[in-house]
Design a protein around this nucleic acid. Sequence first.
DNA 1: AAGCCGGGGCT
DNA 2: AGCCCAGGCTT
Length: 406
Amino acid sequence: MNEREIKSFFSGELLQWYKQAKRDLPWRRSRDPYHIWVSEIMLQQTRVDTVIPYFTRFMAKFPTVTALAEAPEEEVIKAWEGLGYYSRARNLQAAAREIAENHGGRLPDDKSVVAGLKGVGPYTSGAILSIAFGRPEPAVDGNVMRVLSRYFCIDEDIAKPATRIGMEGLARELIPEGEASDFNQALMELGALICTPKSPSCLPCPVMAHCQGRLAGRETELPVKSKAKPPRPEHRLAALLQDAEGRVLVRQRPESGLLARMWELPHVAAPERGVWDSASEGSALLAASMHAEGLAGVRAESLRHVADAEHVFTHLHWHLRVLGAGGGQGRDAEAAVAAEAVVAAAAAEAAAEDQAGYRINASASLPTGYRWIDAADFERLAWPNVFSKLLSAHFSGTLYEIAPKR
DNA sequence: AAGCCGGGGCT
DNA sequence: AGCCCAGGCTT
């Protein structure tokens, strides 16, 4: 078989396989470009099984481009809570506003418009144009690069942008006339169901007979991919502070950057691991930090170790130690903390006010971005997973289950 | 080209 | 507990 025949065998067999093997997914029940678009944004870096419930809820809440464009941003972020990469949600809404404003609320069959949308790169552009409009554009994601690397025995590093460009050229050639939608989905479906990353199921694979990687016995060593740098560790001290009514002090993150505009417990980075490990030094640091933020009344000696939590990002690994005070929460995972009187001035004021350890005068204003929340507020605001879990446990009275062992 | 952006599944 | 997976944007 020559190169041309190997390619046409691949396209023909794959397409035929897909037509009988394709999964019934919510976004495959519609040809509405808006549905395809939302699903493709959610599917960036995210598995099908994770996306399904989010997609269903999202479409019920924001059924049209216009509905999404007109929604308050916090509602969109809340609907995205737990999916990660929150800039996807902000970009999606910004693009929806662009479509509502300049294209009558309908995604146009126009490559330059689609490719120019916020949050739409080469992969997503190709996916929308082919799936929603049948245009013969390649849609090369990680699945497709894995499948093509193996079938054509390509050992270029798929982490390099130049490799993706090359794969797009190849994928474009492979699209059968008039079948771009099914063919592109077939390529990804094969990667998801058969040609999987770890141990590919070659026997039921519709194109095994001419898979160059398999014929060379190299299917498990392909694709070649250079490794990412490990996330850098950060040890952080977080405060779980309550007022007399049991409300919890939280703050909103900055407009841009990591976890932009989401809510969290106040926390501060420990300059070194030793400070984080030491109950007295950690408490003193956290109290001093809160005081510097304008929160008079935190006394280091009243802070107790209530939980540890981890949060791993692609480039960052947070080790969170949660120190708590106030409210009626009597359980103590750790012995009472004896710290230096770092905030002595504030302590004197606070001691008169509240023996439980922390209290903000009702008339005193909180620093910008801070507020007290109750369980109902918690349900409405959007949190990164780690704080969602901690606060959910706190409000349901089960925080001790994720508290440190000792 | 390299770093910045979350989260979950598998072994 | 440590491994792997995976697009787009910004600098």
